[in-house]
Design a protein around this nucleic acid. Structure first.
Lengths: 114, 114
DNA sequence: TCATAAGTTAACCGAATGGTTAGCTTTCAA
DNA sequence: TTGAAAGCTAACCATTCGGTTAACTTATGA
């Protein structure tokens, strides 16, 4: 029996990181707008800087975000590879829920045309 | 700007439910083997029945699992529709990480052939 | 009919979450 | 050179998680 290959703890962290609307919002912002300093990630969500740092820390541990220090700013960006780990879970299990499989395939096919 | 449509709290619950290896294991077992009573979901993970019930409760609140009482058994099964909600997050955001988009598309295309 | 199996509920526990404020260091720019 | 901006760390707090045991209800089958 083939099973989904990937360190379970890593999958845990990826899904957990995405289970919070603020962290998903930060991830989406970084995907859309690219590299951002900490304080700009905190502002739109109305949380303190230490609060934002904790969220970014969770995303970093999940391998979804990485940061680099530049001067007094800490610039964060998305590492898409780690998102694939989580997406991979759905890829693999899609075989069991063909309805969703059809839909996933259709949506992706449409995007490919554009 | 188009954004990912779905109640954020619902997406939260779906990702959170999948962020635990035991809950993913239960989900996978139900996908593979179909309907199972509570106690059979508890056994392979070496946890107590109340422990398993809590996990199933989380999966139910996320809409991933539903249960029906039959005699003294409580039979659980996967509701694939709710998994689509979480998969949909990746579907939508795949546009921003074209590498993963390519990969997702390729994997799904292969499955389609079979 | 009655012991037992399956499930539920409640209470408990330590650890982790998600947020804060206060105080520190580092860097920039006037 | 020095004040302010950006970030980091630590401490704190209420709540939730993930698990347990104990006690209860309901259904089964000998």
């Amino acid at each position: 029996m083939v099973s989904f290959q990937s360190d379970p703890a890593h999958v845990d962290r990826a899904f957990f990181a995405l289970s919070n609307a603020t962290r998903r919002g930060m991830t989406e912002m970084l995907l859309r707008e690219g590299e951002k300093p900490m304080r700009e990630l905190a502002r739109p969500f109305g949380i303190s800087l230490p609060g934002a740092m904790k969220h970014i820390g969770v995303l970093q541990e999940a391998g979804i975000v990485s940061c680099r220090r530049q001067g007094r700013e800490n610039l964060c960006s998305v590492d898409a590879g780690a998102l694939q780990t989580a997406a991979g879970w759905f890829e693999f299990h899609a075989r069991f829920w063909s309805v969703s499989f059809e839909r996933l395939g259709k949506v992706l096919a449409e995007k490919k045309k554009k």
